[in-house]
Structures are given as structure tokens and as C-alpha cells.
Amino acid sequence: MRRIDIVAAIALLGFVALMVLVIIPGESSEGVWHGLSPYFYPVVMLAGVGLSSVGLLVQALTDKSAYNNQTTTPLTWSEFGFFLLACLLILGAVLVFHWLGTWAGGLALIAALMIFMGERNPLRIAAVAVPTIALTWVLVTWTLKIPLP
């Protein structure tokens, strides 16, 4: 966790620098850094992020005893791979939801995740997916009268 804190602190300092030096000036035609410019508030918050990141970096570099009881790795490479795969599945199903509608996207999403988590019985997948989507469709479009794709 100590290494992660150091990397995170440096990354956040980089983010603050990017925002203050590149993105905020690029987003505005009137870059004023004091008074009540529209960018006063985000710059103040970015300063807070920056100062806290410096604090985290200093703590991580100088106070090793604070990490004595944190022995387990918070995220292994296999967990990260598993997570990325799950994200890709969800993103793919959301794209189906966007292009083909609620029923196709819902079926793709629920089926993909159930298979990913170990379910192999198609009847059970259908028994979960179809009533879920149907109930949601009825609740949202008929009761709340909000259209779904």
C-alpha cells in the first residue's frame, strides 16, 4: 500500500498540474487566477487536492511505520484482469442497450454476467433475465411513464 500511495500522490499532483496549467486555460478565454473568476473555485479545490497529495507523499516516504499493519496487497494482477474483463462485458452490454434497446441490452447484460460468474444452465439464466427485464419495463414505462430505449 505504501508504494500505491506514492504512485497515487504523484499521479494526483500530475493531474492538478495538468488541470491548472493546461485544461483550465484551454477551457476559458479569460484566465484570471484571483478574485471571482469562474475558475476560482476549481483552482481552490485543486489546490486542496495538491496539498493533500503532498501530505500523502511525505507520509508515505517518511512514515513507514504507518503501513506496518497493511500486509495484504489490495489488488493483485489477476484480480485486476478479472475486473477489466467484467468491465468490458458490462460496456459491451451497455452498447447493445444503446443500439438495440432495453430487451436486447438487458438480456445481454444479465446473461453475460451470470455466465461470467459461473452459471451454465440456460433455463436458469432465462428465468432470471426475462422476469427482471419485464418487471422493470412495466414499472418504468407503464407505471412511471418514462420511455426506455
Binding site: L109, L113, T136
Partner: peptide, 17 residues
């Protein structure tokens, strides 16, 4: 295996709404 996919689907619907 049943709960998580249902909740993820409801997350998508909730954000869409």
C-alpha cells in the same frame, strides 16, 4: 450469481432514467 447481474442491470436503468 442471481443478485449481482440484476443489480447491475438496475444500475444501468437507474442512470438512464
Amino acid at each position: 450469481i442471481i443478485l449481482v447481474p440484476i443489480i447491475v442491470f438496475l444500475c444501468v436503468i437507474g442512470a438512464y432514467l
